[in-house]
Every structure is written in C-alpha cells, then in structure tokens.
C-alpha cells in the first residue's frame, strides 16, 4: 500500500449543505471516495491509500485536473483505492462532488 496526500488552495467553496458523502467501493479496479465538508472555504485536500504502488505522478495529474475543474473548496477527500484507472478516479471524484453538493445532512 502507498499513502499519498495533496493540498490545494482553491477559488471558491463547493456548493451544497451536506456534510459528507460516499461513492464507490474498494475492489479491484475500483475505489471509494469519502468527501467531508471540514476545511476552510479556500482549501481542499485529497488523501489516498492505494494498492497500486508507484503511481504518484498520475495521481498528482488527476487531482490537479479535478481541483481546477471543480474548485471543491472546503472539502476533504479520503480515498481507498483498489487499483483504479485514472478515468475511474476522475469519475468517482466528480460523483463525490455532485453528491455533497445536494442539500441535506
């Protein structure tokens, strides 16, 4: 297993009032993303535990792109990864932002 951590300053706070949301499951080629509204509005963090060791550069690129596109301010993303491809990671991150953007608890 490999642990990775990314911190970003972002333009704007993410929409919605939900405090947390979860998408995906941990399986081969899949991952779960837990997103929590726990950071100051201008910050975003992504913490990864991955079964695929040695792909730090790919993760950096995927996370940079995600943060640029969605500006997920105030959100902490915690990821358990079973070795998903980059496009699957991007999809789950986007799903997580959409889910927490809903109103509710």
């Amino acid at each position: 297993m490999e642990d990775l951590s990314f911190q970003h300053q972002v333009r704007a706070r993410a929409d919605g009032t939900r405090q947390s949301a979860l998408v995906g499951v941990v399986a081969s080629g899949n991952l779960e993303v837990l997103v929590e509204r726990v950071l100051p509005d201008a910050q975003c963090s992504v913490v990864v535990r991955t079964a695929a060791v040695g792909f730090g550069d790919v993760w950096t690129a995927v996370v940079d792109d995600f943060v640029e596109r969605f500006s997920p301010g105030g959100l902490k993303f915690s990821i358990n990864d079973g070795g998903a491809r980059p496009d699957t990671v991007s999809l789950r991150l986007a799903q997580a932002v959409r889910l927490i953007a809903e109103n509710g608890q």
Partner: peptide, 22 residues
C-alpha cells in the same frame, strides 16, 4: 458508525490490502 467514523479492519494491513471505511 458510518464511513466517516473510519472504523476499518485492524487486520487487513497485515496483508497489505486496502481497507474500506465501513
């Protein structure tokens, strides 16, 4: 005890396997 509580298995790390938050 939802996933945000992160009550993961204490044993999977022995096998270097990924955990799931729930």
């Amino acid at each position: 005890i939802g996933p945000e509580q992160r009550e993961i298995s204490p044993h999977l790390k022995i096998f270097d396997l990924p955990e799931q938050f729930d």
